[in-house]
Simulated assay, not measured.
Amino acid sequence: MVNIGYTLMSEQTPARQLVGNAVAAEHTGFDFAVISDHYFPWLEEMGHSPYAWSVLGAVAQATRRLPLMTYVTCPIMRYHPAVVAQKAATMGVLSEGRFTLGLGAGENLNEHVIGEGWPPADTRHRMFAEAVEIIRRLFSGDYVTYNGEFYDVDSAKLYDLPDERVPIGVAASGGRSARIAAEHADLLVVNDPMPEVVAQFQAAGGAGKPIYGQLALAYDSDAEAAEQRAHRLWRWAAAGGWKVMAELPGPVNFEAAASSVRPEDVARSVPCGAEVDAVVHAVRAFADAGFTHVALVQIGADQQQPFFEWAEKDLLPALRGL
């Protein structure tokens, strides 16, 4: 059975509502929740981007059983990996073992704010591998001194650790990142149902480990309204693929890149309306590719409560059959 999660989409939602949405997701019966960790929204229309770690602390206190995960945090620039390790360990304590640290190599959109430029992809992968190694060492609870190509750590130690080590997930989109995930991570994160990346991860040593994906949808009783909303808020995702998206520096650039994207282009990959079968079909593609967890993104901050009602009554029962 595929575990079905809920995405706390910080780029479209105010901080206090994110906490309320997490409580509603737990009540509705979702198996887990993930949160995006951004400095900017993808598009100006989305309108929000609160600090994910403050929200996570509040969510940990407002929920009781819901597993939580960052989807995903970049530990290579905006945050030093030693600081990420401390934040994640504290979340492990506050959530009483319900937290997983999802990590990724990041996007220019969120990392350029510190004024250090945006490294090329090969450099980012080397930085990322170092960062994950530092985080794992600090999770041991021992003193860590590290002198790497990109990062130095001087006699650091985490004093507040959960009873069990915080699991680490690593996002991948190709062979190199899949190998990094297999070597360093407890689980794999892949946005789309990409069986080739799953196979590369498993062949490199990740066999048997959980695999997380994410599916955007736009629930609405009015299918046309859902399609228009999905286009207004989600057209950035059809703007040219991850190699392009990782390089764009701001919402205005995503707006320009998505200027020719039509509502029907978005609707091809985003189920729009109230058809349960469309969502089941989309989630089945993840299941067939070997995914164990799929987090759903409901597009539109003002449509969350209707989505929860529909999910509890119709969607989740149908997805439990996968």
Rank of each mutant, 00 (worst) to 15 (best):
V2C: 01
V2W: 00
Y6I: 01
S10Q: 10
T13K: 06
R16F: 14
V19H: 14
F30K: 08
F32A: 00
A33F: 01
A33W: 04
D37V: 00
L43E: 08
L43A: 04
H48W: 02
P50N: 07
L56N: 05
T63N: 07
R64T: 10
R65N: 11
L68I: 03
T73W: 00
H80P: 12
P81M: 06
A82W: 07
A88F: 07
G92Q: 11
F99M: 00
G102H: 04
L103A: 09
A105C: 12
G117E: 14
I134D: 14
D142I: 03
Y146E: 14
G148I: 03
Y151Q: 11
D152F: 04
A156G: 15
L158V: 13
P167Y: 08
G169D: 10
A172G: 08
A181M: 08
A181K: 03
E183Q: 15
A185Y: 02
V190K: 01
N191A: 01
N191T: 01
P195N: 05
V198G: 10
A203G: 14
A203L: 11
G205F: 07
Y212T: 02
G213E: 04
L215N: 06
A216Y: 02
A218R: 09
S221Q: 06
D222P: 10
E224Q: 14
A225H: 02
A225M: 03
L233Q: 06
K243W: 15
L248T: 10
G250T: 11
R262C: 07
R262Y: 05
E264L: 07
V266G: 05
A267G: 13
V270I: 08
G273N: 15
V276A: 09
V276Y: 13
V279A: 06
F286W: 00
G290K: 07
L296G: 02
Q298T: 05
E309L: 03
W310M: 02
A311F: 05
A318P: 11
L319P: 13
G321E: 03
G321V: 00
L322T: 01
